[in-house]
Design a protein around this nucleic acid. Structure first.
Length: 581
DNA sequence: GCCGTTTTCGGCCCGACTGTTTTCAGTCG
């Protein structure tokens, strides 16, 4: 069983326990364990027999270790089965509705035998809900809306959509006199690949405690608001027409650092930081870090002073996932994370020879104007027929053409020749070895392999990277961060072999194709893989998207030296597996 | 159920908003 499935079973068990009004601390343990499993870079199935190793994972104790072993053996969990004898799995859908919590789910079930969203719709239509305590007209309306929303929306938004929405809102808020600083917090600030909702913090003289009302009103009248959810003293929540929920908080300047820390999360990071504060005799909330004994404020205006007062280095938001960053900050061994400006080249690009939109020259000019030192032109091969992929003959012509443009650029940028070849069903690459041997960058891409058994797919990818011409493994997880279902490979096995062979592993920077999530990237680093980053550009403007991939690299704790593209052109090529011949 | 500079029991993060209450429970982040 993979980590994801284990984490899901644990998390479902926590939900069911909560519906059954179980011990809140026991529930938290299940949630913590689920998160620990989900973010682990080790495949639990491989260490399930080793109880000692399981216990090394923070959040996994004796009970959870036994649970994990049980899941590996039977595919389920006794406690979960026990709870499901009493409740229904479909109740978990109800739990996802806004305004619905475990208490309401339990109440609906006990009073009306409502166990699913269709049940709930029927109960509402029959007017049965009004008979229940604290179910007024507004509450019922909220549920109806929630059901509609859930039918429309999948829930999470890609980082670039969220960022665009944030920028527009920030422009609007900035126009209000006395709002001076506006910062996105939450998972957007942490650089998550998807964002559940948008948290925006604002401060300035207009946000002072007794003067904030006009700014609140101004925020609540932001024109794109589709649905105002809540409006309080210093908080406005609403939904945009896109379905994205936004929370804006207007806070006094003295609290801004505390608020930023608080609302940037993650939840588990904050819990751990606050536990630390308590241990040191402080209490931390969104307004300040204060002494427990007399409530006197120790820090609050900046994040730096809060972390410092807790004996910690400032922690970059991308690392705040309770994955060891607090211990590292305590021991002054946080990594100096990679930055956008460290990236010198983009090595996966398409042109109008296949499915790109621009010429080689246009791509080169655009990259040069961004300050890149090198790029690789890597058009598709023939197997991807719908893109007019290159066969051997056209590939050779294309290589010649790339070299010509390279000369025309007169040293303003270096252009590597390249090709993105498909892995065929037998694991062979779809161009001849003679042609492949003549290009600088051969990316063997897994994107044609779908909906096949995991073992076969893994086997084929392994065979493809054994080909001595393969220098980069492209789209290792099938560029399907959001649609992974049809694509299962044993990534750990593949990364391990790639590391042995010196084949670099590609990380795609494009927001809807962030191939390796941060956990996978961390695993790649731990296994000693060479990591190359690119935008898989089909258009000159795609290069702008590199920042998303860089944030992903940061989340994986990667520093400059961990990424090949921070090397100068010659060193980049030299760092790849040696070319044949 | 986890965890330990309160070490094998007794703790376990913190506050705001809503709706339906007339002092608060439930939900959310």
């Amino acid at each position: 069983m993979d980590n994801r499935s284990i984490a899901q079973l644990l998390s479902e068990t926590a939900d069911l326990l909560e519906i059954s009004a179980g011990d809140p601390f026991r529930i938290r343990s299940y949630r913590r364990a689920a998160e620990a499993v989900e973010s682990s870079t080790v495949q639990l199935s491989e260490i399930a027999n080793d109880t000692k190793k399981l216990l090394e994972i923070p959040g996994i104790g004796k009970g959870m270790a036994a649970n994990i072993q049980e899941m590996e053996k039977t595919g389920t969990l006794p406690l979960r089965e026990e709870l499901l004898a009493k409740y229904r799995v479909s109740m978990l859908d109800l739990l996802r509705l806004p305004g619905m919590g475990p208490k309401s789910v339990a109440l609906f079930w006990e009073a009306l035998q409502v166990a699913s969203i269709p049940d709930l719709e029927a109960a509402i239509a029959a007017g049965k809900l009004e008979t229940l305590p604290r179910m007024g007209a507004k509450q019922i309306e909220k549920l109806k809306k929630g059901i509609e929303e859930q039918k429309k929306n999948s829930g999470r938004f890609l980082i670039d959509e969220a960022e665009l929405a944030a920028e527009k809102l920030i422009d609007y808020l900035r126009k209000f006199d006395g709002i001076e600083t506006i910062t996105p917090a939450g998972s957007l600030r942490r650089g998550r690949e998807t964002v559940g909702d948008l948290d925006i913090l604002a401060t300035g003289p207009a946000c002072a405690k007794d003067k904030v009302q006009p700014a609140v009103e101004y925020t609540a009248s932001y024109p794109p608001i589709a649905d105002l959810i809540a409006k309080g003293e210093n908080k406005v929540s609403f939904r945009l027409r896109s379905g994205l929920q936004v929370d804006v908080r207007l806070l006094p300047e003295a609290s801004y650092g505390a608020a930023l820390q608080y609302f940037s999360g993650s939840k588990m990071h904050n819990v751990t930081v606050r536990q630390r504060a308590l241990k040191l005799g402080y209490t931390l909330n969104e307004y300040a870090l204060a002494r427990l004994e007399d409530g006197s404020v120790v820090a609050g205006a900046t994040e730096q002073e809060i972390y410092a007062a807790l004996g910690l280095n400032w922690i970059p938001p991308e690392l705040r996932e309770n994955n060891g960053e607090i211990e590292a900050a305590e021991q002054h061994r946080l990594p100096t994370l990679i930055e956008q400006r460290d990236i010198r080249g983009d090595v996966h690009m398409h042109t109008d020879a296949t499915d790109g939109k621009n010429t080689i020259r246009e791509m080169a000019e655009a990259a040069a104007s961004r300050g890149y030192e090198y790029i690789a032109i890597t058009d598709h091969s023939k197997n991807l027929a719908m893109t007019f992929g290159l066969d051997d003959e056209r590939a050779l012509e294309h290589i010649k053409h790339i070299r010509e443009v390279n000369d025309e650029m007169e040293g303003r940028i270096r252009i590597f020749t390249g090709i993105e070849v498909d892995i065929l069903h037998d694991g062979q690459l779809d161009l001849s070895d003679e042609v492949l041997a003549r290009t600088d960058v051969v990316i063997a891409s897994v994107h044609s392999l779908f909906n096949q058994p995991e073992e076969q797919m893994t086997e084929r990818v392994l065979r493809a990277i054994e080909n001595p011409n393969t220098r980069i493994l492209g789209h290792p997880t099938g560029r399907l961060l959001l649609r992974r279902e049809g694509f299962k490979i044993n990534l750990q096995q593949i990364l391990r072999r790639a590391a042995e062979l010196g084949v670099a592993v590609e990380h795609n920077a494009y927001p809807d194709r962030l191939d390796l999530c941060d956990r996978d990237l961390r695993m790649a680093k731990e296994l000693g893989c060479k990591i190359s980053i690119n935008t898989d550009s089909h258009h000159t403007s795609h290069m702008e998207k590199m920042s998303y991939g860089v944030r992903q690299l940061r989340r994986a704790w990667l520093a400059k030296q961990d990424v090949l593209n921070t090397l100068p052109a010659n060193e980049f090529l030299a760092a790849l597996r040696p070319r044949v011949g």
